[in-house]
C-alpha cells in the first residue's frame, strides 16, 4: 500500500503535468479557432482587429526573444574579458560555422556532420525507447491488473528504478559483447520504469463506474482492454511515456560518451579531448533542442490520443 502511495507521490509531479497542460491548451485551441472563424468573413478589413492581433502576437513572442537576447548578451560579456576560459556566443558561432552550415558532410569514420551524429543517437533512442514502450506498458498493465503481480514485482521495480542508467552499461557490455546493443539496452532500462509505474497507476485508477459499465455490457477481456482500459489509462500512460523519453535522451549522451562511435555523446567527448569547447557548446544547444522536440512530440501525440478522456 505504501508502495503505491510512494509511487504516486514520486511521479505525481510528472503525472499532473499533462492534465494541467491539457486543460489550458484545449480552451486556448478552441478560442483560436473561434477568433479565426470570426476574422474570416472580412480578412484584413478591420484595422483595429489587425492591431489587436499584432499586439497579442507580440505579447507572446517578445518575452522569450528579450530574455534570450539578455542571456546571450550576459554570456558574451562574461566571456569577453581577458583570460576567459570559455568561448562566448559569437566565438562559438565563428568557430563552428563549418559545422552549422554543413550538417550532412561525411568524411568517413566518426568524422561526420552534426545531423548524422544526432540521427545516430536518435536511432539508438528510438530502438531502446520502442522496446521500453512495449515492455513497459505490458508490465504496467500486468502490475495494475493483478494484485499478486504487483506485490511480487513492485519491490523489484522500486529498487531497480533507482539504479543510475550508466551503472547498467558495464553489465550490458558484458552481456551483449557489443557497444550498440549495450547503449540501446541502457536506453531501454532507463525509460521503462516511469512507463511501467504510470501505466499501472493508470490501470488501478480506472473508475469503478467504467468497470460497472463493462460488467453490465459483459465486455470480454479483449474488449475491456481496448475499449475501457487503454483509453481510461491513456493520460497516465502518456505522462509515463513523456518522462521516459526525457530520461532516454538524458541517458543516451552519457552512454555514448563511454561506448564511442558516431553519436552526439561521443562527439562531445571527442571535442573535449581535442579541446574544441565551441563544438561542445554547439552540441549542447543541439542536444537541448532535440530533447525539447522529443518531449513536445510525445506531448502532442498524448494530447491527441487522450482528447476527451480528462473530463468527467
Amino acid at each position: 500500500m505504501s508502495a503505491i502511495l510512494d509511487r504516486t507521490l514520486t511521479f505525481g509531479a510528472g503525472r499532473e503535468r499533462p492534465a494541467a497542460e491539457a486543460s489550458p491548451t484545449q480552451p486556448v485551441a478552441r478560442k483560436a479557432t473561434t477568433t479565426a472563424a470570426r476574422a474570416q468573413p472580412r480578412p484584413g478589413a478591420d484595422p483595429a482587429a489587425w492591431s489587436r492581433r499584432l499586439r497579442n502576437t507580440a505579447a507572446v513572442v517578445l518575452p522569450p526573444l528579450i530574455v534570450t537576447a539578455v542571456f546571450l548578451f550576459l554570456w558574451e560579456m562574461m566571456t569577453s574579458s581577458q583570460g576567459a576560459v570559455l568561448p562566448g556566443p559569437s566565438q562559438v558561432i565563428s568557430d563552428t560555422w563549418e559545422l552549422i552550415v554543413n550538417p550532412f558532410y561525411d568524411y568517413g569514420g566518426n568524422d561526420v556532420g552534426m545531423a548524422w551524429q544526432l540521427l545516430a543517437s536518435l536511432e539508438r533512442v528510438a530502438y531502446g525507447y520502442a522496446l521500453a514502450v512495449v515492455a513497459g506498458i505490458g508490465l504496467g498493465v500486468l502490475v495494475g491488473q493483478s494484485t499478486w503481480a504487483m506485490r511480487g514485482l513492485d519491490p523489484l521495480f522500486q529498487v531497480l528504478r533507482t539504479v543510475p542508467p550508466l551503472a547498467w552499461l558495464p553489465i550490458s557490455l558484458a552481456a551483449f559483447q557489443a557497444s550498440n546493443p549495450s547503449a540501446i539496452f541502457v536506453i531501454f532500462i532507463t525509460a521503462i520504469w516511469p512507463i511501467i509505474i504510470n501505466t499501472s497507476v493508470g490501470i488501478r485508477n480506472i473508475s469503478q463506474d467504467y468497470v460497472n459499465v463493462a460488467r453490465v455490457l459483459r465486455l470480454n477481456g479483449f474488449e475491456y482492454f481496448t475499449k475501457i482500459m487503454l483509453p481510461a489509462a491513456a493520460p497516465y500512460v502518456f505522462s509515463g511515456l513523456r518522462i521516459g523519453i526525457g530520461l532516454a535522451w538524458l541517458a543516451i549522451v552519457a552512454a555514448e560518451m563511454l561506448i564511442g562511435g558516431v553519436g552526439i555523446g561521443f562527439f562531445i567527448w571527442d571535442a573535449w579531448n581535442a579541446s574544441m569547447l565551441s563544438d561542445i557548446v554547439l552540441a549542447l544547444v543541439y542536444v537541448g533542442l532535440v530533447g525539447f522536440f522529443l518531449d513536445r512530440l510525445v506531448a502532442i501525440v498524448g494530447n491527441w490520443v487522450t482528447r476527451g478522456t480528462q473530463a468527467g
Binding site: S207, Y210, N212, V216, K227, P231, A234, A311, G312
Partner: peptide, 11 residues
C-alpha cells in the same frame, strides 16, 4: 443500469 453519474465513456 442508468447510473447516478451517467458513467458515459468520455473518450
Amino acid at each position: 443500469v442508468v447510473f447516478q453519474n451517467h458513467s458515459l465513456l468520455p473518450w
